[in-house]
Measured scan of single mutants.
Amino acid sequence: MATGGRRGAAAAPLLVAVAALLLGAAGHLYPGEVCPGMDIRNNLTRLHELENCSVIEGHLQILLMFKTRPEDFRDLSFPKLIMITDYLLLFRVYGLESLKDLFPNLTVIRGSRLFFNYALVIFEMVHLKELGLYNLMNITRGSVRIEKNNELCYLATIDWSRILDSVEDNYIVLNKDDNEECGDICPGTAKGKTNCPATVINGQFVERCWTHSHCQKVCPTICKSHGCTAEGLCCHSECLGNCSQPDDPTKCVACRNFYLDGRCVETCPPPYYHFQDWRCVNFSFCQDLHHKCKNSRRQGCHQYVIHNNKCIPECPSGYTMNSSNLLCTPCLGPCPKVCHLLEGEKTIDSVTSAQELRGCTVINGSLIINIRGGNNLAAELEANLGLIEEISGYLKIRRSYALVSLSFFRKLRLIRGETLEIGNYSFYALDNQNLRQLWDWSKHNLTITQGKLFFHYNPKLCLSEIHKMEEVSGTKGRQERNDIALKTNGDQASCENELLKFSYIRTSFDKI
């Protein structure tokens, strides 16, 4: 039985969820670079991206490699990797027998973001014989899940209580170790020597080791999670996991709180800001991140802002960003909400898709409305799209047979046209069989910064309504002859009103 693990408890099935942008060198404390989270699957090609990484700022997932063999891993080693800020997950990587050479110096898994409450997941690794993470000293947050690894031993010899604050939620089941077939031998045991430290858990006094050649490092209890030197002297209180010299914040392997210019500090002093819960960055760093993602459509890219001495992905609820200094300031009234469309555009074809934009005031991208039916549609669209004030790209209304009016965009005031449909149009209306009105132009103002209007096959939309939009939106004169079809717009509506004058002759039985 794995020490510190839980057996036999019912657990939810383990679901495996399925960018080499360097964020800056980590400095003297770390020998390499800070790398983003990685999802490495199918083959070993991307694994080489770990070569210079000291910190993975995010998670590391290595999974679904069915053609790899043990010899493929023999020359692979990433000794610079010290810390993973989120979680480490391995799933069905064939041929991998140990992690001792792959990650010989991995010391800390912070667990800032977890995989279903777990910071370390080893699942269905069919050839893994031992973990071998002999320098792993601290899992700051989260638990361990090690399950269905039929060859995995050296679990009962690990004292997880020396690595985690609590072992109650560890789930370590259905491994070879369960069948008591392992016969784990710690260093020196074969020669009758006791080389590794022994600890007591559940009444068992057991030597602690990761492999037959690597003991588990056990520091004096007084050192807590700070770690200790090879001689057993406690590291500085700002260290986490390990250090090369005692009581020196510049000799830590990793930091308990924050890293700044080669030393570990309790908090980031001005003019620095907390970033990702582990390091200090200056304003320029946060500003660069903001600008890199301002026009990016890459998933996970955030326009970072500053709030409460932190550089964070977005302002919290009730705050909006001051564009001059990136500071989050309290909103006066309802907060603006910028919604970034991942692929640059979004099609609204149902109430469900409209709900995804609920509360958005600025759309960074283009909207395509293609709704053919739905219950209580006008009210639903207004509830979900009615706060949109600005669209950076274009607005396209296409084959939306259920629409009679666009009044559900009740606050839309600006279409920038930074991206144009077919390279020309910022407003595009095609084949809307029941569209009769755009907006009530006596109450609604709309500016279209650039781009043209396109109207074709809107049989109940009168040309007068379209011409009014040209005047109000500032697009009059931009359109070419064929942009607004004269014969297919309003051709099934009563669009022309003329005053009919009647004269009559009164007659009676005795007068003409």
Rank of each mutant, 00 (worst) to 15 (best):
S77Q: 14
L44N: 10
Q299M: 14
I139E: 00
S213N: 13
P269N: 02
R162C: 07
L155D: 01
D261L: 09
D86T: 01
F285V: 07
S323F: 05
I158H: 02
K224W: 03
L106R: 01
I201M: 09
D177R: 05
E314G: 09
F123N: 02
K191T: 11
Y30C: 15
T320E: 14
S77M: 05
H226E: 06
R263P: 03
R263D: 14
C239W: 00
K176W: 03
A254D: 03
S317Q: 06
T85L: 10
P70D: 15
L114Q: 10
H307S: 11
Y171T: 11
C153L: 01
Y259D: 10
N43M: 12
D248P: 01
I40L: 13
D86I: 02
G95K: 07
V108S: 05
N135Y: 03
L326Q: 14
C255R: 00
A198Y: 05
S237T: 09
V253P: 04
K251S: 05
L47V: 01
I109W: 00
N257Y: 08
S112K: 06
G58I: 00
M38H: 14
P220F: 02
P271D: 03
G262F: 13
N242T: 12
D184N: 11
W160V: 00
L155Q: 03
L50W: 11
S77L: 07
E147R: 01
Y171C: 02
S77G: 07
D159N: 07
F205Q: 06
M125Q: 10
N149A: 01
R279T: 09
T320V: 07
Q61R: 09
L260C: 02
T250E: 10
Y273G: 04
V93H: 05
Y272A: 06
N150T: 06
N242W: 07
S98V: 02
V200P: 03
G183H: 13
Q287K: 06
P336R: 08
S166H: 04
S98M: 02
L44A: 09
D72S: 07
V55Q: 01
D159V: 01
T140W: 06
P104T: 02
Y154N: 07
P249W: 14
M83N: 00
E314I: 08
F285A: 15
C331S: 02
Q245T: 06
D39K: 15
P79Q: 08
F116Q: 02
N308A: 04
